[in-house]
Design a protein around this nucleic acid. Sequence first.
DNA 1: GTCTATACCCTGATAGAC
DNA 2: GTCTATCAGGGTATAGAC
Lengths: 222, 222
Amino acid sequence: MANQEIKSSNSENEAKKTTKEKIFDASVDLFSKKGFNDVTVREIAKEARIREGSIYNHYKNKEAILDAIIDYFKSEITQSNIPAEETTNLIDKGPEAYFEGGVKMFMARINIPQMEKIWRLVCIEIYHNAKIREFFKKELLEEPLAGWENIFSIMMEKKMIKPVNPRTLAYEYWSYAIFLVFEYFILKYDEDFDSFMNLGLEKMINHTRFLLEAIKIEEETN
Amino acid sequence: MANQEIKSSNSENEAKKTTKEKIFDASVDLFSKKGFNDVTVREIAKEARIREGSIYNHYKNKEAILDAIIDYFKSEITQSNIPAEETTNLIDKGPEAYFEGGVKMFMARINIPQMEKIWRLVCIEIYHNAKIREFFKKELLEEPLAGWENIFSIMMEKKMIKPVNPRTLAYEYWSYAIFLVFEYFILKYDEDFDSFMNLGLEKMINHTRFLLEAIKIEEETN
DNA sequence: GTCTATACCCTGATAGAC
DNA sequence: GTCTATCAGGGTATAGAC
C-alpha cells in the first residue's frame, strides 16, 4: 500500500507522470469513449502530449497498450475478491448481512476512479477481444455464479432460507448484477454522469430485498 | 403474408436473389461475425460474389447497408409486439398463462432464421451505433418495462399476485431477459451452436417459475 | 528517450468503358 | 447494372538525427 500510487489518476499531478503512464491514461480515456478500433495512435499521442513515434518506445504496438489495460483490470478485479475464510464467517450472520457484503464486494470492483472507464472499455470490447471475453466469462460470470450457488446451498442446509434450486437462485441473484453493468456501461454511460457506484447500489439493494423476501423462512412455521 | 419472402434466407435459392439481397445477406453474415468496422467493402463484395464497385449502385455507402439491416430489425421487432387488446384478455387467464405468453412473445422476436445473426449484430454494435442504442433502450428496455409494470399493477389490483412494488417486479422479470440476450449473443455466441430459442427458452421458463413462486398468493390466507 | 519524416498498406469511394 | 482501374486519405509502424 506504500508505493501503490503507480497509476496516478486523472488531472492530478500530470507533470509527475512518466511518459508510459501518460500513454496508458490517455489510452484508457480514448478507448473507453470511442472503442479500440476508432482510436488512432495519432490521437493517443496528441492526448498524451507526446509525439507519435515515442509511443513505440514504451509499447510494442497499439494492441500492447490495450493488453496492459486489460492486465491492470484483471489484477484489480482479482484483488478485490473476498477470501474463502471470511465467507464462512459472514454466512453465520444471516442472509441479510451476507447479501449486504455481496453488494459491497461487487461495488468495490468498480469504485476506483479510473476503473469506471476501464469497465466501460471492457464492456464495449467484450465481443471483439478474446482475452476480455474469457476473463469476463470466468471471473465475472461463472466464478461468482458458482460462489453464490455454494453460499445458497450452505444457507439452505442451515435452514436460513427456503429450499429452492441453488443454481437457479444464484442466477436470479447474479444475473441482475450483470444486467446493471450492461445497462449502465453500454446503454446509459453517455447520459448518466453519476457513477455506477451511486446508481447501481440502490438498484442492487432493491433487488436484494426482493430476493430476500422471496426466499426467507416464514415466521409462522415456528 | 403472400410476398413476404423478400429476405430469402441463407444458402437456399441463392441464384434467385437480387444483387441487393446478396449484398444485404452477405453483410449480415460478415457484420454479425466481425462487427461493422472490421468488415471491408471488398469482403462484402467477395462474399456476395460481385465486384466492389457494384455495391454502390445499390447502397449509397457502407453505412447505408448497416442502416438497411437496422431498419429490417426494427420492423421485425415492432411487428411482433402484442396488441393492447389481447393483453387484457390474457391477464384474466392468470399469471401463469400470461407469463407463458410473455416468454413466447419474447422468443418470437428472435426465432427467425436471419434474425439471430442480426440480433448478434445489434448486440455488438450497440455501444457504437446511436440508432441501435436508442432503439434498444426504447423498444427493448423501457417499453417492455413499462408494459410489465402495467401488467403487474393490474394483477395486483385483481389480487392475482402479492402486492409489491410493480416497477421493481418489472425489473426483476425483464432484466433477466436482457441478461440472457447479453449472455448468449456476446459471451457465448461462438461456442453455443444451438439457437437462442432453444437455450434461452428453458432458462426464461425457469426464471418465470421462480418469480411466480415468489409473488403467488398463498393458499393459507383463505 | 524524444523528435521529424516517411514508408507502406488498406480503406471507402468514384470514373468511365462496356 | 456490372465491370476495371484508380484515387485520395488515413492507418500503423519504423528509421535515423538529436
